[in-house]
Computed example of a mutant assay.
Amino acid sequence: MPNLTAFLSYVFVTTFTPGPNNIMAMTNGNQFGFKKALNFILGVTTGFAIIMLLCNYLNLLLFNLMPKVGVFMKLLGSSYIIYLAIKILKSNSDENDSPRDSMSTFLNGMLMQFINPKVILYGITVTSNFIIPYYKSNTTLFLFSIFLAFVGFLSTSCWALFGAVFQKFLSEYRKPFNIAMALLLIYSAISVLK
C-alpha cells in the first residue's frame, strides 16, 4: 500500500501548480467566462483521463523508450507551449469572439494533453511510484485514472473560475495579464527543456 499522504500531496501540488492546462483554463475563463471555458476544461479532463490510463498500462514500455522519445516529447511539448504563449499574446479583448474560434474548445483541451509534457511526465511519475507497484487490476487502474482526471478537473476549474471572477478587473489590464500568462507559459516551456 502506498503512502497515502505522499500520494495525495504529490497529486494535489502537481495538479494545482501553474502549467499549460491551468494557465489556459484561467485565460479562457477570463476571456469567455467560466461557462464557456467549461468545454475546454472537459476536454482537458477527457484527455487527462486517457493519458493516465495509457500511463498505467504502458508505464514499463515508456520507461524503456523514454531516452529515445524523451527528447522528442520535450521539444514537441515546449514548441506547443510557446505556440500557446503566442496565441495568448495575440488574443484581443473582442467580446464577440466565438468559443469555436478560440482556444476554448473541447477538442483543443483534449488534444493538448497528448503533447503536454507536464501531464505525460506527471502520469509516468505518479503511476510508477504510487500505483503500479501496489495495484495491478484493471478496475483499480481505471479508478485511479478517473480519480486523477477528477483532480485535474478540479484544478482547471479553479483556475478558470479565478479568471472568470476577476474578468472585469482583468479586462482593464488584459494586455499585462496576457503578457504575464504568456511569460509563465514560456517559463514552463524552458523548464521542460532543462
Rank of each mutant, 00 (worst) to 15 (best):
S145Q: 05
T46D: 13
L170V: 01
F72T: 14
D101Y: 09
S188F: 11
F48N: 02
L161T: 03
Y135E: 03
R100P: 01
S188Q: 11
M1C: 13
L183A: 14
S102A: 04
V44T: 09
M73N: 03
F40M: 14
N30Y: 11
S98H: 07
L143W: 10
T46L: 08
S128M: 08
Y57D: 12
N30F: 09
A149C: 12
M66G: 04
P67R: 10
T46Y: 07
S9G: 06
F147H: 03
K175S: 09
P117C: 10
L148T: 07
R100S: 05
S79M: 01
A164P: 00
L193I: 14
L8D: 01
L183E: 11
K175H: 13
I41Y: 09
I124W: 07
N92D: 15
F153I: 03
A189D: 08
N129L: 14
K136A: 15
L76V: 06
S79Y: 10
G29K: 05
L54I: 02
T46P: 10
L154I: 03
V126G: 01
G77T: 00
M24D: 03
L76H: 08
I115E: 02
F32H: 15
P2D: 08
Q113I: 02
N178K: 12
T105N: 04
R174S: 12
I81L: 11
I146T: 09
V13C: 02
T45N: 13
S93C: 08
M66W: 15
F32I: 13
S91E: 14
V119A: 12
Y122C: 07
T127A: 09
F34W: 11
I23Q: 08
T125A: 10
Q167D: 07
A164K: 00
I190F: 11
